[in-house]
Amino acid sequence: MIEKTIFITSWLTQAFFVLAMLSGIPLLFFYHTQKAYDSVQIITYLIPNGNFIRKFHYFSSEALLIFALIHTAQQLFRKQIRISQSSWNYAIAAVISIILLLFGGFVLKADQSGHSAGIIAIGMIHDFGPFSFLSHFLESSRHYFYWKFFLWHAIFLPALLIASLYFHIKRINVPTEFAAIAAGITIISIFLLPFPADIAPYLNYTHIKGPWFFNGIETLLSKGYPVFIILIEMTIPFLLLILYWRAKHKTVISALFFLWVIYYAAIGSI
């Protein structure tokens, strides 16, 4: 069963990636980093079909992450890995790129939650001991706050993801029927699923949340855990995935991985 479906999720992941990338290109024409919130509102409410394209970009990206995670989980249930270690490591790099891409997109909507998420990300890296200098790769003045996030979201991370996918499967191949299925799922999602509202910067909002996949981090931050500990905790699943390829007792690594997922989901739902 897994042997058959693992190719389906692989094709769907690639299809959602292509759709997310294609739907992101038109948004670039109207997104201005210095007037980020205003430009997002102009895209959403003034430009014909802007709202549709924005939603298409959002839902195809969310589906990209979900299918990438399902594809990874499927691999952990397989009896053996049929790809080389480097190919496996590129897959992990691809998953990390997807998570960071989605986070970048969340920041770039530039409403209160996006802006706060950006500030928190910079603050967390800044508090990460010897790696604090990395915050300069995200941080700019107030006037240019979104510029470096934009660079990561529109150029560096897509390039990294394309490279990782290419080296993972040696080609990027999206069969037409899977592209059609992915487009169908995205369009149905646009009409059936709620699209998170933008919180205007001047509103006195009592509680804002980050993207759903960072809920666990938000909970740990709210409880006052040191940033260093949180970031170490977040590297655990990726370290386990890296270890998985070489591990003799793959079941143990898989079990630890899924235990971590349950733990993260539990703290994220608090």
Binding site: I120, I208, E218, S222
Partner: peptide, 25 residues
């Protein structure tokens, strides 16, 4: 207005006469 925890911009709750950070409380 930047919260000294993670830097989010705090709001003023006029009823409770407190500044409240919307990110982590």
């Amino acid at each position: 207005s930047h919260c000294t925890h993670m830097g989010c911009v705090v709001n003023f709750d006029a009823n409770a006469k407190r500044f409240v950070c919307p990110c982590h409380g």
